[in-house]
Amino acid sequence: MSTGTDPGPGPGTEGPGTARRDARLTRQWTTWVPPVAVVVLAAGWGRALPGPVVAVVGLCLIGSVLSAVHHAEVVAHRIGEPFGSLVLAVAVTVIEVGLIVMLMAGGGDKASTYARDTVFAAVMITCNGVVGLSVLVAAVRRRVAVFNAEGSGGALATVTTLAAMTLVLPTFTTSRPGPQFTGAQLAFAAVASLCLYGIFVTVQTIRHRESFLPVVREGDPAGGDGHAPPPTVRDTWWGLGLLLVALVAVVGNAKLVSPAIEDGVESAGLPHAVVGVVIALMVLLPETLAAVRAASRGRVQTSLNLAYGSAIASIGLTVPAIALASLWLPGPLVLGLGALHLVLFALTAVVSALTVVPGRATLLQGGVHLVLFAAFVFLSVSP
């Protein structure tokens, strides 16, 4: 994954001077935007914000998202794949957990489905939106998107197992009325999710690391990393620190604008689940941009690592954390999906398997995933 600080030589570049100048400009604004966003977050926390201030917070949110992408790519380029893909996935998931807990703590009766709506939205966004867009971008540029079927297939199997165990089974269990787990069932699902996540990370980073490395095609630079040299250790630590600051700014400012989102959803007469979809879209935007940028460079495996890794982390870390938080959070915890979302999940699982197994994908597969994602968004608005 490129650091974003040196685009490297290639057709249409304006020369090394322009590249270095653009890199300096990128470093400048991505350095000061996260601290400014945190200051705005601190100033607006716990207050009712008027419309103009909400707009400023929204701009800080967008800037923080773009900064997070830049600094994540700096860290990822230094430590290499597949470790780099874990950086943003885990960091964003930790922030996502904090956001869900904050919303559930102050959301009243409506908060019982926040975790389910947000986690399922994350699965649909990553497995259909991010995967579809990445495949589409790569196929447009190189006709065929090439990736490692073994690694991607294992990641997809982990995603579907985690999603089925935590979001599908509660709909069919009978020990408690409604789509809810009992305490013992929730504890089992949480422990099993953590175990699966730990096994996946071990396989991805240690035992079978080669299965998650980008496929290098003829004519690509060695390793697929482009011409940019790795950042220094100092720059890497600096980038990691700013990445964490940017992610805090993302989730914090998303929390600030969420009341405006909720009010807009209610005034428009939309289902309450739309709030979870919008929040998941905002939180996952850094990973989406990073995945698309990787796909545009022919590193589709990196894009899939980000997509499926984010889905795995979103379930494998969020559900155990929410299960623990439910001990003190008021109200029930509803995890089971309804019939409509069960159908969408089944379609996603089947289509994803057909996409991943060959190790190659074209515009068609990308288009199918994007249509499924569009169906999810549309049916969330109009169930």
Score class of each variant (00 low, 15 high):
residue 277 V to Q: 02
residue 266 E to Y: 07
residue 317 L to P: 04
residue 319 V to T: 08
residue 320 P to V: 11
residue 289 L to D: 02
residue 301 Q to Y: 02
residue 338 G to L: 00
residue 260 A to G: 09
residue 280 A to Q: 09
residue 296 S to N: 14
residue 305 N to D: 13
residue 335 L to N: 06
residue 333 L to K: 04
residue 310 S to V: 04
residue 275 V to R: 05
residue 328 W to Y: 13
residue 269 G to N: 09
residue 281 L to P: 00
residue 340 L to T: 14
residue 303 S to N: 03
residue 330 P to S: 14
residue 282 M to W: 10
residue 297 R to V: 03
residue 308 Y to S: 05
residue 338 G to T: 01
residue 261 I to F: 15
residue 320 P to F: 10
residue 287 E to D: 13
residue 326 S to H: 01
residue 274 V to F: 04
residue 285 L to R: 13
residue 345 F to A: 13
residue 280 A to Y: 07
residue 288 T to P: 00
residue 341 H to Q: 14
residue 263 D to V: 14
residue 311 A to E: 09
residue 291 A to F: 06
residue 317 L to F: 13
residue 277 V to I: 11
residue 324 L to I: 12
residue 265 V to R: 03
residue 314 S to F: 01
residue 311 A to T: 14
residue 275 V to I: 11
residue 275 V to P: 06
residue 315 I to E: 06
residue 327 L to P: 02
residue 272 H to N: 09
residue 276 G to F: 10
residue 284 L to K: 15
residue 334 V to A: 11
residue 277 V to C: 04
residue 280 A to D: 09
residue 320 P to T: 10
residue 324 L to W: 11
residue 339 A to D: 13
residue 282 M to I: 15
residue 279 I to T: 04
residue 293 R to G: 02
residue 325 A to D: 07
residue 266 E to C: 06
residue 290 A to W: 04
residue 265 V to C: 05
residue 271 P to G: 08
residue 340 L to Y: 02
residue 289 L to I: 14
residue 316 G to E: 10
residue 316 G to L: 09
residue 323 A to E: 03
residue 308 Y to E: 03
residue 285 L to P: 01
residue 316 G to H: 09
residue 301 Q to T: 15
residue 267 S to F: 00
residue 345 F to T: 06
residue 304 L to R: 07
residue 345 F to M: 14
residue 300 V to L: 09
residue 318 T to V: 10
residue 297 R to H: 15
residue 317 L to E: 08
residue 281 L to N: 08
residue 280 A to G: 08
residue 305 N to L: 05
residue 320 P to N: 10
residue 286 P to F: 02
residue 317 L to H: 00
residue 305 N to G: 15
residue 298 G to P: 05
residue 302 T to A: 13
residue 338 G to P: 03
residue 328 W to N: 08
residue 329 L to Y: 10
residue 294 A to T: 05
residue 343 V to T: 12
